[in-house]
Nucleic acid binder design. Sequence first.
DNA 1: TTAACTGCAAAGAATTTGCATCGTG
DNA 2: CACGATGCAAATTCTTTGCAGTTAA
Lengths: 150, 150
Amino acid sequence: MSDTTMDPWVAQAERTLAGAGRKRGGARRAVLELLAAESCALTAVQIEDTLRSQRRAVSRASIYRILEELERVQLVQRVETGQAMVRYERVRGDSEEHHHHLVCDSCGVVMPFSDPALERAIAKVSERVPLAVVSEHEIVLHGACRQCAA
Amino acid sequence: MSDTTMDPWVAQAERTLAGAGRKRGGARRAVLELLAAESCALTAVQIEDTLRSQRRAVSRASIYRILEELERVQLVQRVETGQAMVRYERVRGDSEEHHHHLVCDSCGVVMPFSDPALERAIAKVSERVPLAVVSEHEIVLHGACRQCAA
DNA sequence: TTAACTGCAAAGAATTTGCATCGTG
DNA sequence: CACGATGCAAATTCTTTGCAGTTAA
């Protein structure tokens, strides 16, 4: 696939990894393309199942290793939703929309949401807090989705 | 111990549990008193270690069962900090200060913080979101503590 | 006396690691 | 050719469950 048809986030990720002395690999590429296409956070098991159903199976161990590496170079971030498993999603650049998560505690569905006013409030409070640096933040709202509340 | 010397949160918890048909027990009481005295979130393992060092050892299985029960009746809530283990802390009433968490990704320390403006922003956004009900929210800021950044 | 509470040990489930092999640079 | 990438299986670690004995109501 040429660079012109490659997803820009995947291309950026490959460049970052190459710069860190990493070599390309089919398993990691498959994970990157899945994360690039996904709009919200997935668990490692969901990633494994999705890739297998796409006939591009990747072993669970590799998935965890790949996600760990991507998290280290800040291409991916973990999302914790209070459910059993950790979720992962690609990090959006500053120009892209930054989102947070809604969790229905009844059916377990996870949805993204974003709100500029909330981001401003977070940016402001980040300056007053007893941390020398605030590198990221995570917000999760729990409740009942319309379907479950009906 | 009489009600007048018992921590108010512990007393409230015992009442709630009695109302739910539960009987009193020493292990649960020890966990309740620890959570009442603690200002921030603890992991199950920290609870176990602390109680053992206070010579009031409680088995790990009981700790998990107790925390599960307390979470069910909303006396305790889980806090996920992106670290390996889930943490637990007592739920504050509306009159008490509601807090969120700061995590130093370098040394792992977890600290509480609170900000009224942020709470207002959350309350406002909760009304616009595609959930029928928003029952709670969790905010975690990650970064480097002053000690680690120095 | 009944049903809840607990501890201990075994079971489960998610994640990590060891090791041999394959593939990229 | 060297070192990273990957799969498989075993090992870890946190959490849950089964069971038997203890205790509150």
